[in-house]
Design a protein around this nucleic acid. Structure first.
Lengths: 196, 196
DNA sequence: CATATTTAGATACTATGCGTATCTATAATT
DNA sequence: AATTATAGATACGCATAGTATCTAAATATG
């Protein structure tokens, strides 16, 4: 008669995904999700303290970055492209509208989660793509200047979130931005340049 | 007795700014603004069809990009830094929270406005900073590969919107990213590289 | 300057969602 | 088997969304 904890939580997640798909993030409400999941608001409020948290939880892993395997075997350019493609696919699962809305409602905690996800992506770029390329001799051994690692993802995100019309291709990002920047591989000339 | 059109609109703008400052974007409402501006909801709904539009209009020029003068006289590095500083100051007037919220609620029209503002910034970079540097011989005459111009702003925005803790300095962005990328000045090796 | 038009300002209304409180019957835990 | 946690249902007060209606004053027009 009464559903178990897991049944309820799966029903909630499904309801959130359906509401998102049908009406968009703006119209996702505690009331609507409760109705759709055949449950009630108190059940939701016991779990999530905000709409963003509810949606984020229900989207689950779709948002979070898992390491694609085999990146380190690819030549530099292919590795970069594969990583960019992976990141873009992850975003497309959620959709630009929902992502923008989530960012807009994010509190400090959620923002910290997003930041961690970005840093993880940068770590994968450094360890799974750049380091192997250095080992293979595709790149010189000079340390990468601080801040460079975020560039591919910053550009990708910019394109995905804002340029919904004619975004750059992944090849353009890789060939015109990532590769030149990595090959420049100059030591920082500025004040506080560090290494990674 | 009855206020003029301009008086009312200035009162609305002031009310929005006050509500923003006191309670943050999330709590800005048509009702609250109407109360604070000593007017009524219909007066607001006649003007703005959404909260985002109301806030955006009331923030007015704070958001929009005006050309700083004298950029073209500066050496390349100084010009880049000045432009980055200008862009960052513009964002700080509004604040990261409000900016994220606005982005989250932006409809197609508002998003198009944002995109235009970005393109304007890129235009200034190209015409007021890079072109003069080429004329002075600080940069080679090779055309800039497509997509490169957005990089400084993409990185800046990424830092401003998401890395609220320890963002990169403008000097790091200029020295580790912008200058190496511009000096690489390689023709695109990839498929569809164009020029600007 | 007189007339026509617009719209500020006030009020009222329906509808929706928020967030909380309360109760019970059942699932989970020990 | 006894205890604890919580699903499920209902209800409530409150805030805001968005619209409709009316009037009197500001603005535009000829």
């Amino acid at each position: 008669m009464r559903r178990t904890k897991n049944e309820v939580e799966e029903a909630i997640a499904a309801a959130v995904r359906d509401e998102l798909a049908e009406h968009g993030y703006a119209k996702v409400s505690f009331e609507g999700v409760a109705r759709r999941a055949n449950t009630s608001k108190p059940v939701l409020y016991r779990r999530y303290s905000s709409r963003a948290e509810m949606v984020l939880t229900s989207l689950g892993r779709s948002l979070w970055f898992e390491v694609p395997t085999g990146l380190s075997q690819l030549p530099l350019r292919q590795g970069i492209l594969a990583l960019l493609r992976y990141a873009r696919n992850r975003s497309e699962v959620v959709g630009a509208d929902t992502l923008r809305a989530l960012i807009g409602e994010a509190d400090k905690t959620i923002l910290a989660l997003l930041t961690r996800a970005m840093e993880k992506a940068e770590g994968i770029l450094a360890e799974q793509v750049i380091a192997p390329a250095v080992d293979r001799g595709e790149l010189g051994p000079e340390p990468i200047a601080s801040g460079v690692l975020c560039v591919p993802f910053a550009v990708l995100r910019e394109q995905f979130l804002f340029r919904t019309n004619v975004p750059m291709t992944l090849e353009e990002i890789a060939d015109n931005i990532c590769l030149p920047l990595l090959k420049a591989a100059t030591q920082p000339q500025g004040a506080s340049g560090g290494q990674v």
